[in-house]
Amino acid sequence: MDEVAEKVRNILVESLTLEPEEVTLESNLRTDLEMDSTEVVELVVALEQDFDIKISDGEITNRQSVGEVVKIVRGKLAK
């Protein structure tokens, strides 16, 4: 994992009180990490603060995987 992916994983590990090995790039937010919509809101707020980016409503949902979230963050950091 690169630095961005590590940071996203740490956010998830901390907010969901999981072990680091429970979160991989393949983990689906809903089916693997069992995140509900409010936990997604917490994730979005943390990503915005930690990466200093803006994420629109609905851009990140619990249908996505951790890898897909990392990709969205990378795309915003590149702009």
């Binding site: 409010t38 936990e39 809101v41 917490e42 707020v45 915005e48 603060q49």
Partner: peptide
């Protein structure tokens, strides 16, 4: 942004 999504 300071409000917890769990508040509601």
């Amino acid at each position: 942004a300071g409000v917890s999504p769990y508040m509601a």
